[in-house]
Nucleic acid binder design. Structure first.
Lengths: 146, 146
DNA sequence: GAAGAATGTCAGGTAGCCTGACATGTAAGA
DNA sequence: TCTTACATGTCAGGCTACCTGACATTCTTC
């Protein structure tokens, strides 16, 4: 029991940390090539048919430069590749390599397992409700009025 | 609609970002002394009767050194003060100054308002359910077994 | 007392993020 | 058509949060 309710941002941070640490620990235990949290996030926002660096940056909520550097690391690690975009010569598509595809499935399976473990502690319904509440489009941070 | 469900860590990040940006934007709009996200988090885990740096570090999930440096900045800004612990001479208690107390109440009010705005979009019940689900003690990241 | 642990602190290093700057390619209007 | 505006990708430099290592001080326990 505590005097004041913990604030939501704090709770989000704790929850996120639990998943992230579980994921990285499982990957390490499986002997996978170590990836940083940032790289893991980049993997998560990358879609199957290829994405531009700018689009990745938007999804991650960081600048193009930051996304670029994260991509660079994963390209060097052999997980991603850059291919010219047939639609427009000014942009290049980022795609997973075969190895990257494998790692992506592995990470997805681990996250699913973690979610199951969470459902074991709070109910499955609670997990579904959690997901439903979080999937609201957050959009812009609200204006400070009133 | 999308092919695969977004993973939970990603959703936590988005939610947290929404709150954090709203908080910092409101503080800035109110003309308050700017604080970093880290300092805001430190404020959140600080309790009323004073806390040691080591304890703060545990609550934030970082090392003592990192917590120390965050405290240092807030002391310099006039929000916190260090007082010798009457119980033990080897530790010092970190407390809010009068100015820090004011800032803390201000931030608390803003967060409450943000939570209300969230309740407006998804229902109040959904917010309560969200909080209930997140307040489970996360504890250690689960072992990677099976 | 002496050994061991906890606390607070300083120093140095790494990673992620930022802004600034610039080259290239595309789109839209005079 | 050309030229002006805009988007993209990239390099360079800097800031901040975080880490590990090291040390002095102060309990605590045997």
């Amino acid at each position: 029991m505590q005097s004041t309710r913990r604030n939501l941002p704090q709770l989000f941070t704790d929850a996120r940390r639990w998943f992230e640490e579980g994921l990285l620990a499982s990957l390490e235990a499986a002997g996978a090539t170590p990836v940083s949290p940032t790289q893991a996030q980049l993997f998560a926002v990358l879609d199957d048919h290829g994405t531009t660096v700018s689009e990745l940056a938007r999804r991650m909520g960081v600048t193009r430069q930051t996304a670029h550097q994260a991509v660079h690391g994963l390209v060097a690690a052999g997980f991603l590749e850059q291919v010219p975009d047939p639609a427009s010569a000014r942009q290049r598509l980022i795609r997973r390599t075969v190895e990257g595809e494998r790692a992506h499935r592995q990470a997805g399976a681990i996250l699913e397992r973690l979610e199951d473990q969470l459902a074991e502690r709070i109910s499955r319904e609670a997990v579904d409700a959690l997901r439903a509440a979080l999937e609201t489009p957050w959009g812009q941070p609200p204006p400070p009025n009133s």
